[in-house]
């Protein structure tokens, strides 16, 4: 009796993969098995990431605008005209785009520093033995686990100039005399960094915490016998031992922050102050409210290229040696 499953399996077995993929014949049985296991993941990656990236790259060289919203494929190829247009700092569009890139980098670096400091501090605290550390760990994860929109809207309310609790506290304690415009004007970028870091630091914390847990206790014992004090043990044992996990965390935080849309959009709205208009918000506004899809796609590709370049430089110059050595 052949079930449908076995019929499919037999059909699949009949396909000579080697005929279509000559490299397949060079793989060992074990490698073939590994690729088969990877296949579902690769297919998902292809559909969700690779196709849209390619599509975006294609649109970025086409004149897709309001006239071609339903039949983008009929739009003419304009090649690098879109890029010239959005990268020209003499135009309003171009200068605002460059400004948004600057704000994006401030956003990424600021978030990186703040999440790392907060995450490392929290991880070091959690790594101590104290009563209720498991409860504390769960609590500290909440900002990251809670739905982003909820967290962000609460922050948005708290940061309101007139009715927000933060200004209210600062005013009543006499730290400030005038209410601060947190979400409007130049402060917007700092508020964005603060709030985004709040939602992201638990991830850094939990990764560094795992890193701390993997440092052998004997290294600390050896160091204290060698005469190292508390700070020196941190400086010479903990910090270097966290380097591999820090490398990953920093890379991810940097890239994820550069392409983060949710925090900026929910906190600052669809009409953000210019200081808070990071590239991804600007691209969204430019492309979807002006129906300038070709030019928006060109901006996206530029942002993508900048992010990838930064990642590559970071990887190559800062962590290459230790990174590959540790993972060997």
């Amino acid at each position: 009796m052949t079930t449908p499953v076995t019929q499919v399996r037999n059909k699949l077995a009949d396909i000579e993969i080697g005929r279509y993929l000559p490299l397949y014949n060079q793989l060992t049985e074990e490698q073939r098995y590994a690729y088969k296991l990877l296949l579902p993941g690769l297919v998902m990656m292809f559909i969700i990431h690779f196709i849209p990236i390619m599509w975006g790259a294609l649109i970025s060289v086409m004149g897709v605008d309001s006239a071609y919203t339903s039949n983008w494929y009929e739009a003419p190829f304009v090649w690098f005209e879109n890029y010239q247009y959005v990268l020209d700092p003499r135009t309003v569009i171009g200068s605002r785009f460059w400004y948004s890139i600057r704000q994006t980098i401030i956003f990424a670096v600021g978030t990186l520093v703040l999440t790392y400091v907060l995450g490392l501090t929290a991880a070091l605290v959690l790594n101590q033995r104290f009563k209720g550390r498991f409860a504390a760990r769960t609590l500290l994860l909440l900002p990251w686990v809670a739905p982003a929109v909820v967290t962000l809207l609460v922050w948005r309310m708290m940061l309101q100039q007139q009715s927000g609790i933060i200004n209210s506290i600062l005013l009543s304690t006499g730290i400030i005399n005038e209410p601060i415009y947190w979400l409007i004007g130049d402060n917007a970028i700092w508020s964005l960094i603060l709030v985004h870091s709040w939602t992201q630091f638990p991830l850094v914390m939990i990764m560094l915490y795992a890193g701390l847990q993997s440092i052998p206790e004997q290294l600390y014992e050896a160091a204290s016998i060698d005469g190292a004090g508390r700070w020196q043990r941190f400086r010479y044992i903990t910090f270097p031992q966290l380097k591999p996990v820090s490398a990953v965390v920093i890379l991810l935080m940097m890239l994820w922050t550069m392409i983060n849309f949710t925090s900026a959009f929910v906190l600052l709205g669809s009409q953000p102050p210019q200081a808070g208009q990071v590239s991804i918000l600007y691209i969204y506004e430019f492309a979807f409210s002006n129906f300038q899809f070709g030019r928006g796609a060109a901006m996206s590709v530029v942002l993508f290229a900048i992010a990838m370049t930064m990642a590559m430089l970071y990887y190559k110059y800062l962590f290459d040696e230790d990174f590959t050595e540790e993972s060997r």
Binding site: Q218, L219, E221, A222, A223, I225, P240
Partner: peptide, 13 residues
């Protein structure tokens, strides 16, 4: 004092 540990406890980095 100086101590030698069973698994050496050398600083890996």
């Amino acid at each position: 004092i100086a101590m030698v540990f069973q698994n050496y406890a050398l600083y890996p980095h």
